[in-house]
Design a protein around this nucleic acid. Structure first.
Lengths: 193, 193
DNA sequence: AAACGTTCACTAACTAGTAGGTAGGTAAAC
DNA sequence: GTTTACCTACCTACTAGTTAGTGAACGTTT
């Protein structure tokens, strides 16, 4: 991080602040101090706080999309893909950070309109990705579930966001791991006893 | 609300602010203006913001506990009890509010120590309540699930908190109803086909 | 019953500090 | 010679919290 551009440092420091303290929980002065530049320099790169916030969402969405794409092209079993999806949240827990967009969803009443829209789009992207995995997995006979795949996709997103929310606050590892594995394994095709 | 004491008005106005904007998203001035008293009057009732915050958690926890107790004594089927639990979150969605403690969990890094502890205790209370319902329901042959009941209890809490988080931000009714019903119905004992 | 002291609920006017944002400038790079 | 990346110094509005006080309600003492 030290050999990043100032722009990049601002983004990663601000992202950390949002994911730990929330959008209303940090100031330009906080970011400036940690990056080691003046407050005015932040305004040079991001005219206003909502401008910075929007860039954080775009950057985060891009980074996560790249991971989803990697999972897509890994040619693993579909259940493994779901497990890897859940692992992202477990990783977030171990860094003691919320999902950026999970945090912003909670605060969405205080966000600018572009930030709100970008936050919703983040979730929709995940749901569409999961829906595809679920459908492909069912067709391949690797996954089982009842009802529309989109409902299951939403259930997975809701479950992992909620598990991260509660587990992080309670500093409770089992709250994220047990929830994640219970959820994902429920899609595994059971052998007839 | 108009014929409440000032104390009561402060609590209900502040609760609304936390549940919509977050703990860091409102000020004493905001509350004072909406209640129609001076800022100093708020400090008379609650010396500091963390004092007010702690009272909000206690009040909220008490109100929700009362609902859980009512459900307990209603002598309904255990699946119905789970449905009623989920209905609380759907109610919250319709008021366009987060769960108070769900919001505070996201912001828990900015909270006082007593607030943090009270927030965690809120979730533990729910998990214990759900665990009892799940165990009793399984013994009565009304509910089915694999593994420890506490894991399922945590899964339910995580799922509903997450569903509320995402659904509220996206103003999306199906995100909460579909998730809630899919989750709860999965505990129903299935007839052998 | 009148006077007293205390408590309660509240106020206007203040403090010190912080919020996001701006004005105007420097110095190096393209 | 304009653009980029930064700076110091500053602004206004707002933050939580304090001070010193008012007036009504209360029980107690005389």
């Amino acid at each position: 991080m030290t050999n990043q551009s100032t722009y990049g440092k601002i983004v990663s420091v601000a992202e950390k602040f949002v994911r730990t303290r929330g959008y209303n929980g940090f100031s330009y002065a906080d970011v400036a101090a940690e990056v080691g530049v003046s407050k005015a320099s932040l305004h040079h790169h991001f005219a206003t706080k909502p401008d910075l916030g929007l860039e954080l969402i775009r950057n985060f969405t891009k980074n996560v999309s790249d991971v989803l794409e990697e999972i897509d092209y890994s040619n693993q079993k579909h259940l493994t893909k779901l497990r890897e999806y859940a692992r992202m949240y477990e990783g977030s827990f171990h860094e003691n950070k919320m999902c950026l967009c999970g945090m912003l969803a909670a605060e969405h009443e205080s966000l600018s309109d572009p930030m709100r829209k970008a936050t919703i789009a983040f979730f929709e992207g995940h749901e569409v990705w999961l829906e595809k995995v679920l459908i492909a997995g069912k067709e391949a006979g690797e996954l089982q579930f009842n009802g529309p795949a989109i409902d299951q996709a939403r259930l997975i997103v809701a479950n992992l966001q909620g598990a991260l929310l509660v587990a992080k606050a309670a500093h409770s590892l089992p709250r994220i791991t047990a929830v994640a594995s219970n959820l994902i394994e429920s899609y595994r095709v059971k052998e007839i006893a």
